[in-house]
Amino acid sequence: MTPLQKAEQAVLGAVLLDPGQLAHLDWLAPEHFDRPTHQALYAALRKLRSGGHDALVTEGAVPLSWVTDAVDEAGRHVRGMTAVYAHTLISACPRPEHAPVYARMVLEGAIHRTIAQHAVRLHQAARADARQGQVDGALHRTDVLAGVLHDLAQRWGTEPRPVPADEPPPTDRDGPIRASVMEDERFLLTVLADRPKAMNAVVGWLRPGDFADPGHGELYRCLGALHHRGEPVDRLTLLWEAQRRGLLADGTLTTDNLVAICDDVGAGDAAWLGEQVLRSSITRTAAASADGVRSLAENEALSPGQLINHALHALGPLDEVRARWRTATGRSPAPPTHRTPASSGPPAERMHAALARSTPTPVPLPGGRTGPAPAPAGARSPARGHH
């Protein structure tokens, strides 16, 4: 059993032992639990509390009906919930008064799990768009992931800001490339070599890194350099520029490939072909960003704050290429990707409770001695049992 599963059991066991602990867990939702049975039981306990169950007002030992009613209510929504398992949860709780800390562990696991799930969906949308020659699905999923990251940051109580990871997560930007993508890149380079003035249509938003083939990207860089210096473009000037950049020596370009592109007829619209290249770049970048975010989410050593900020940084390259896509297509800027926190969100003091430590703060006593902190008003004794 993993530490996260033990934490889920401990939270539920604490609430079964001491219903008053629910007052400190309003920021924890049923969907934050991983196991469906735990989700159903926690939802049942919250429902009993909102319905004014007798266990919340009865002094002394917690009535056994608190457990049996919770099991019955959870059993209406999920199979496998029994009174025996409920008592197993009770025995799994080290100390009921530490429920907020156990719940913080559950929330931390939920944050990792949620980010990983949305990263997988972004990757799937990017691959689907790549096959269909589209970008809308990937861009939509990017907005959803960014919104989730901002929402989780607000729930955890941290400031969302992109921060690079000490060790960048592995990505797969150079995955399988469709033949049509390579053809579009070659057609574009042929047009730019045959009609150098066509460079004006793409130079403002297309970058060498947008090309799937590294050799095509470097040839585009050579064309851009000649265009920037105002020099003529032909087979010889391109060959010379490539040689000066060492592209022939390291094998990035070959003389035969370069000559073949220059000797071909440049038929096509440079802006349209450039958009095709940029569209492919968006889907590849989205897939790579999704891979990076998923790798981060699977790193259990990262705290939620670190994970959220590293994930936002991993989306940075996609934001950059997306901005150039808007320039190329003349689309208006996208709306903000984060959501404004709702006024009904968890109160600040309850969010701080999620970050509380399990060790009580010592209270100064006369004479310089220290003692345990007093129990919160209304809190039930951890020794309180069921009858």
Rank of each mutant, 00 (worst) to 15 (best):
T2Q: 12
T2F: 11
Q5G: 08
A7V: 04
L12Y: 08
A14K: 08
L25D: 02
L28N: 03
A29G: 00
R35L: 09
R35A: 10
A40E: 02
A40I: 03
A40H: 02
G60S: 13
G60T: 10
V62M: 09
S65E: 11
D72Y: 10
D72R: 15
V78P: 00
M81S: 01
M81D: 00
R95D: 11
P96T: 09
H98T: 10
P100Y: 10
V101F: 04
V101M: 08
Y102H: 09
Y102F: 14
E108R: 12
R113D: 04
R121F: 11
A126C: 06
Q134M: 03
Q134T: 07
T142W: 01
V144D: 12
L145K: 09
L145F: 11
W156E: 10
E159H: 12
P162C: 09
V163T: 15
A165M: 05
D166I: 08
P170F: 10
P170D: 11
D172V: 08
I177R: 12
I177F: 02
L192P: 01
A193W: 03
D194R: 09
A198I: 06
G204S: 14
P208M: 07
D210K: 03
D210E: 00
D213S: 14
D213N: 15
G217M: 11
Y220P: 00
Y220C: 02
L226Q: 03
P232S: 12
V233C: 06
D234P: 01
R235D: 05
L238I: 12
A242Y: 01
A242M: 11
A249H: 14
L253Y: 15
T254I: 09
T255Q: 13
I261L: 15
I261M: 13
D263V: 09
V265I: 15
W272P: 00
L273A: 06
L278H: 07
S280T: 08
S281M: 03
T285V: 07
A286D: 04
A287L: 01
D291Y: 09
L302K: 06
S303Q: 14
N309A: 08
N309M: 07
L312S: 11
A314K: 02
A314E: 14
G316A: 15
R322P: 01
T327H: 03
T329N: 07
S332I: 10
A334V: 02
T337N: 11
T337C: 13
H338V: 05
T340E: 12
S343E: 10
S344N: 09
G345K: 05
A348R: 12
S358M: 14
T359L: 15
T359G: 05
V363N: 04
R369A: 12
G371K: 04
P372N: 06
A373P: 02
A375F: 06
A375H: 08
P382E: 08
A383K: 07
R384T: 15
